[in-house]
Design a binder for these strands. Structure first.
Length: 623
DNA sequence: CAACTCTGCGCC
DNA sequence: AAAGGGCGCAGAGTTG
């Protein structure tokens, strides 16, 4: 049985159970558990009002927890500390002193772990059974049905898309909840013992673990600040897209059938390949005839065009605008704000990922390759009195590639400010073709050369390359050879990286951070190097930029991080030339981890709406 | 009903 | 032998 207090110790694992995952709309903790290295557990449990879902705090517990969490001498260990620290903040409890995080540790030590969730990790590394979760899940499912009948306010699906069972643990009795709640802190402390040793034995690894801990403060500020969206624009966009859906639906029902569902790949496939009798040219991974955009684009048929317009409109609503509407919250100033959930160590490469909503994939009609573009950035805008400075590393991948591979020709071209993809297009397909396209206002060859580079980087094989270039394999091979002649480092670097993976099972970014790669998938490793190094670049930059804002007490805030881009919200009158250039310089400085002098950063300005970004900001025009 | 896979698609 | 990398999201369809 857990104690009704916090066990003694210098290092304590902590966890909270909550009424939801989204504190911005009222989710709060109602269960707080603790475990010391000796395995003694303790917990506080508060009642939850079944109609408001609000936990009823006990003042004495809060006082005890404040004494504990504010005590700088005690190390607190969490699994995904960001979540618990924020939940505690919303309860009026500040977490001070050293924080350790088994989630960060797991990811830093083994980037290729199947999952970094607490229960599977504990099962794998310390043999801790995960049976308690299933037992509790079953009980909560049962109680949810009873609660529903009583008219209680039980968790709805939505917002996070997660199982609402996880948000209704407050329904369970101690008998069911304690083994689970205290199980998690027991797992955490056991895992920490293992991971702490591992980190101590690997100082290089610890360096990156420490960086994640420092970066988390930046992440939490970024999320708390959030991103403003205009509610009325979202509503208007949904209305417009709905009208488009209705228009398309009428045509599709008339042409194909009353109950035709264009969201069903199965039904679309039947229509395209059976009813219309089109030849199958594209296949899905599992060998089914594909009806993706690429396949449909090749079919010149009026109804198919309507089908694609319909799907685009549906996606605009479901994937973007509806999600924004569902997750936006009203702040004190009357602005609608999105508070996304950034994951610092989601991707295996060390990049950030983002969800609820994902701000890293907001459709941008200006840069999309689709011929039916979605414009999802229209509702995004700076807060009143602020502007956005959008700073992105221009051509980051190719700079990192050239740097890592010591590509003389590539570096020379980059330093000369040449357009590498244009050069490559000329080299591969000839001046005549490129010049002709230029006169006709097209950039087909250049775009193809760019895709060619990324294809190589992503490990594209000859077969796909031939399909991409629409030529026989022999010709694709010849084209690749010519590309290698222009940039010899591409071939040697790819070979070197893949050989490294086969030999040692991991690669190292320019920062020296290890990324583990399955030797059977060595072709992925070159991209891992570039993507992973890019992650190192922006993570260091975020820490520097944020620290400088703090030091200068500047009313400026990072609001988004999009792989090679930072969006900074800054009070309008503070965005001077000096400030803009300082941000640029802080980002361009790679701390000597690259051989090149700097990674060039381009600045852009957003004053009204994200989709009306003014590119190539000339900072000399600022005050 | 919840959890899973498959398909497709937006971004870098 | 075969493979274009990394994500999050939603809907359809299946499974238990």
């Amino acid at each position: 049985m857990p104690l009704d207090r916090i066990p003694k110790g210098k290092v304590i694992a902590c966890d909270t159970e909550t009424t939801g995952v989204y504190p911005w709309t009222g989710a709060r903790p109602f269960y707080f558990s603790f475990c010391n290295p000796e395995g003694e557990t303790g917990r506080f449990r508060w009642k939850v009002d079944p109609f408001t879902r609000k936990p009823i705090p006990i003042e004495a517990d809060i006082r005890q927890m404040k004494d504990f969490f504010e005590d700088e001498r005690i190390t607190k260990v969490f699994h995904v500390s960001k979540f618990d620290i924020r939940m505690l903040q919303f309860t009026g409890i500040e977490v001070r002193g050293r924080v350790e995080d088994t989630y960060f540790a797991a990811h830093t030590l083994r980037t290729n772990e199947m999952t970094h969730a607490l229960k599977p990790l504990a099962k794998k590394y310390v043999g801790f059974s995960d049976a308690d979760e299933k037992t509790l899940d079953k009980e909560v499912s049962r109680l949810r049905r009873k609660a529903k009948a009583k008219g209680w306010n039980i968790g709805q699906k939505g917002r996070d898309g997660k199982n609402p069972i996880k948000t209704d643990m407050w329904l369970a009795s101690d008998e069911f909840l304690d083994p689970y709640g205290c199980g998690d802190v027991e797992r955490t402390i056991l895992l920490w013992k293992v991971f702490e040793d591992a980190l101590n034995n690997d100082p290089a690894c610890r360096k990156f673990y420490e960086r994640e801990l420092r970066l988390q403060k930046v992440t939490m500020e970024m999320e708390a600040r959030g991103v403003r969206v205009k509610h009325e624009i979202i509503v208007k966009e949904i209305k417009n897209q709905n009208a488009e859906i209705e228009r398309c639906k009428k045509i599709l029902q008339k042409e194909i059938g009353q109950d035709f569902n264009s969201n069903s790949p199965l039904q679309v496939s039947a229509y395209i390949y059976k009813t219309l009798g089109m030849p199958v040219r594209h296949w899905t991974d599992s060998g089914q005839p594909s009806v993706d955009a690429k396949a449909l684009q090749e079919i010149d048929h009026p109804t198919v065009k309507v089908l694609r317009q319909h799907n685009s409109a549906e996606k605009a609503i479901s994937n973007f605008f509806q999600k924004y509407l569902d997750t936006a919250v009203l702040d004190e100033e009357g602005c609608w704000i999105l508070h996304p959930d950034f994951n610092q160590v989601g991707p295996a490469t060390g990049r950030y990922s983002c969800r609820n909503p994902n701000l890293q994939n907001a459709a941008n009609a200006l840069s999309t390759r689709s011929d039916i573009p979605i414009q999802a950035r229209t509702p995004f805008c700076p807060r009143p009195g602020y502007v956005w400075l959008s700073a992105d590393y221009s051509g980051e991948e190719i700079w990192i590639f050239a740097d890592g591979s010591n590509g003389d020709a590539m570096l020379r071209a980059l330093y000369d400010g040449r357009d590498l993809h244009s050069d490559a297009a000329r080299f591969i397909w000839g001046d005549e073709q490129v010049d002709r396209e230029k006169r006709e206002g097209r950039k087909t060859s250049r775009a193809k050369a760019k895709m060619f580079f990324f294809g190589i980087l992503y490990g594209m094989q000859e077969k796909s390359m031939a399909a991409f270039l629409d030529c026989p394999r022999s010709e694709a091979r010849a084209t690749l050879r010519r590309y290698y002649t222009l940039y010899p480092n591409v071939e040697t670097f790819m070979d070197f990286i893949q050989e490294t993976v086969r030999r040692q099972g991991f690669i190292q970014t320019a920062w020296g951070r290890k990324i583990f790669v399955d030797p059977d998938f060595a072709y992925k490793a070159t991209n891992y190097y570039v993507q992973g190094t890019g992650a190192d670049v922006i993570k260091d930059a975020m820490i520097r930029v944020n620290a400088w804002f703090k030091k200068e007490k500047l009313d400026a805030h990072i609001v988004m991080t999009i792989h090679d881009e930072l969006v900074v919200e800054i009070r309008k009158d503070l965005l001077t030339r000096a400030v803009a250039e300082k941000i640029r310089a802080l980002m361009e400085d790679h701390g000597g981890n690259l051989k090149i002098k700097k990674l060039p950063v381009e600045l852009a300005l957003v004053t009204k709406r994200w989709d009306q970004k003014e590119e190539h900001l000339d900072t000399s025009k600022l005050g």
